[in-house]
């Protein structure tokens, strides 16, 4: 096979071929190194990883398939409550709970997706908002089960795989979250390069074209919506299991706005964009926010606006630019 073609074969839709090799190593090494170096901040690190997973799930739906959703937090929250309730009432085995929560959120995504995905544009956006509001309303209302405004407490997890206790310092939680993230990431990476993933990329660009080649557009969108929902559900479940609590805030519009901000800040359709965005998010949140939720809103809002105005490709755009500069400098300085 000639070299050019093999490059085209591997090159993902919106990514340059070089992004594969070194690009993979860096974030995962950093995540692992953090485990050893950042021992005092493992809780924070776990939050960051969960946010990465959450933003990644939105990237599939919004970045690749172009479904603009304002209610993605519904799936995160649903997964969180499912995992929390499962731990309290059914089994406190973490992996079982994680799978149940993932499936539950995926099913919710499937049901709502089949309902709303034949609409488009503003109507679709409103429907995602309405469904988000509905789920939050239900959770608030079933306070006997969800704890309402007080949230769900008293989650106690059994040791992971029967062997690793969730320790006070969050070692187990961090590695557990990292492993789950890696699994989902590998899956998403593979799927987005598949014929299915490429058809999503096409649906975002031109629905008429995709219909004209016989793509069942609606089903594909339902599929990726459910997949994204399931993934968000996993993120929610991880959050419930590692923090041992679920709050209504997980379902609120602010949560949907936050995950949008993280994804857009990092850069859509890159998968690793979620990493860049989440790291910035967690750091900024830690510095600026905890004191006062309203100052936190200001940060999220201002970042959202700034990205739209000045940083269309997000942080990954900057990284790309820097990498390209570095490469060209390198080439100039190494004589052949």
């Amino acid at each position: 096979m000639n070299p050019e073609r093999s490059r085209a074969t591997r090159s993902p839709p919106a990514e340059k071929p070089h992004a594969a090799g070194w690009g993979h190593l860096l974030p995962w090494t950093a995540a692992l190194a953090f485990y050893f170096l950042g021992a005092d901040f493992l809780g924070l690190g776990t939050n960051a990883l969960i946010m990465v997973l959450f933003a990644l799930s939105l990237d599939l739906v919004l970045g690749y398939a172009g479904i603009i959703t304002m209610g993605h937090a519904a799936f995160f929250g649903f997964g969180a409550y499912a995992a929390g309730l499962c731990a309290i009432h059914v089994t406190n085995d973490p992996v079982t709970g994680l799978l149940i929560a993932t499936a539950a959120a995926g099913i919710l995504g499937f049901v709502t997706g089949t309902l709303i995905l034949h609409t488009k544009g503003v109507t679709l956006m409103m429907l995602t908002l309405a469904i988000g509001a509905l789920v939050a309303e239900v959770a608030n209302h079933l306070r006997d089960y969800t704890g309402g405004d007080d949230g769900l407490h008293g989650i106690r997890m059994a040791p992971l795989l029967g062997a690793f206790r969730f320790d006070l310092w969050g070692h187990t939680a961090y590695l557990y979250t990292l492993a789950v993230l890696l699994a989902w990431f590998a899956l998403a990476w593979r799927i987005m390069r598949s014929p299915f993933g490429r058809s999503l990329d096409g649906i975002r660009q031109n629905v008429r074209r995709m219909r004209a080649i016989g793509t069942p557009v609606w089903w594909r969108m339902v599929a990726v919506y459910s997949l994204g929902a399931a993934m968000a559900g996993t993120a929610g479940a991880l959050s419930a299991q590692t923090t041992r609590a679920v709050g209504l805030t997980a379902l609120e519009l602010l949560a949907s706005g936050t995950v949008l901000m993280v994804l857009i800040l990092g850069g859509t359709r890159r998968l690793y964009g979620a990493f860049a965005g989440a790291v910035v998010y967690v750091v900024v949140q830690d510095f600026a926010a905890q004191v006062d939720p309203f100052r936190w809103m200001f940060v999220i809002g201002a970042l959202l606006m700034a990205v739209v105005l000045f940083l269309e490709n997000g942080l990954m755009g900057i990284i790309d630019f820097a990498a390209a500069r570095a490469r060209s400098l390198w080439r100039e300085q190494t004589p052949r």
Binding site: M125, F294, G301, V308
Partner: peptide, 21 residues
């Protein structure tokens, strides 16, 4: 639409923060 949604969503957050401040 996405840029519009994000920008105006962000603006709402900023207004809320400003009013409460």
């Amino acid at each position: 639409e996405l840029a519009q949604a994000l920008m105006t969503f962000g603006f709402t957050f900023v207004v809320i923060a400003a009013l409460t401040a």
